[in-house]
């Protein structure tokens, strides 16, 4: 500590001071960041090339793959590789479950922020957090042992159906929508409410005419995030949807989604076979959809910033 050295030697950067723990620490955390980037790139590249193999190597037509409803990869004489029924199934359960969960989730959010802000949040918030915590196989299992028989006996059909899948998914994405919607509505500036009440509007008018429009981009984000979760959910849906290869004609028909077919067949098919490769192509669709959801959310948030 004695300052006998001239300032140059004390204060200028030297080789030793560059190689101290500082640079080592920085290197470690940069490495962690690099691992995240490489994981993302690796996933995209590996699943991308593997997913394209059925088209490039096995000569399956992309058009047939996406538009044909004939899924019969094991038929030696006349194989069919159309996954349209599964794409349809995925979109159907996604939209239907969002249709059920969005009003409930946004309603719950409004209840917490507007109707009973003092105690509603204290009750509903933990409820929502616990719903998130329940593992998806447990949702699937309860769907299978409670919902399937219930629908079979009271509504009709086999019980394994689009409807059952929709209900299970709706419950699973409800917490996502509720949480984000609550944040969105409670972060609205209070002068919006006060202004509306000052004009003599009732609470419902304030909610409908002022709060919901103001929070709309965030509410849409909440719904999209819920849909992204529904689209990618595999096991819970697989346990209740019936997994048939036909295009469903009614909501009570058994059906299948991209994820359920992958879940069901990945383990049973020979790695590298045409059938197996088409499963990877379905996985690629999931990956692309997951990118699409991100882009959609980014678009919405950029619109939110413009306001």
């Amino acid at each position: 500590m004695e300052k006998i050295l001239p300032a140059k030697d004390r204060l200028l950067k030297s080789k030793t001071s560059r190689l101290d723990g500082e640079s080592r620490g920085k290197l470690i955390v940069i490495l962690c960041a690099v691992i995240m980037i490489s994981a993302t790139i690796a996933i995209t590249i590996f699943l991308g090339t593997k997913g394209l193999q059925s088209f490039t190597k096995n000569g399956v037509s992309i058009l047939e793959f996406l538009t044909s409803t004939k899924w019969n990869p094991t038929d030696k004489a006349n194989p069919g590789y159309g996954v349209l029924p599964f794409i349809f199934g995925s979109f159907a359960v996604t939209f239907l479950s969002a249709l059920v969960a969005a009003p409930l989730g946004i309603g719950g959010a409004i209840f917490m922020t507007e109707i009973a802000p003092s105690w509603g949040r204290k009750v509903l918030q933990p409820v929502v957090e616990l719903l998130v915590g329940i593992p998806s196989v447990v949702y699937g299992f309860i769907g299978l042992s409670v919902l399937v028989p219930f629908i079979r006996e009271n509504v009709g059909g086999l019980g394994f159906s689009l409807l059952t899948g929709t209900i299970v998914l709706a419950i699973m994405i409800l917490p996502t929508i509720t949480t984000i919607a609550t944040d969105a509505i409670s972060s609205l500036p209070s002068h919006l409410r006060e202004g509306s009440y000052a004009l003599g509007a009732t609470r419902w008018q304030t909610i409908r005419k002022v709060l919901i429009p103001a929070a709309m981009p965030s509410l849409l984000t909440a719904i999209i995030l819920g849909m992204a979760r529904a689209f990618g959910e595999a096991l819970a849906v697989q346990m209740v949807i019936g997994n048939v290869r036909n295009l469903p004609t009614s909501i009570l028909d058994a059906s299948a989604t991209l994820t359920t077919i992958i879940t069901l067949n990945m383990g049973h098919t020979t790695y590298g076979s045409v059938e197996n490769n088409t499963l990877w192509s379905m996985g690629l669709i999931l990956l692309i959809m997951s990118f699409a959801f991100i882009l959609l959310i980014r678009y919405l948030s950029s619109r939110r910033k413009l306001r």
């Binding site: 300052k3 004390r10 200028l12 950067k13």
Partner: peptide
């Protein structure tokens, strides 16, 4: 740029 800010802040 060449100053070792860590040493500087001690002084």
């Amino acid at each position: 740029e060449d100053i070792n800010v860590v040493a500087l802040r001690k002084e």
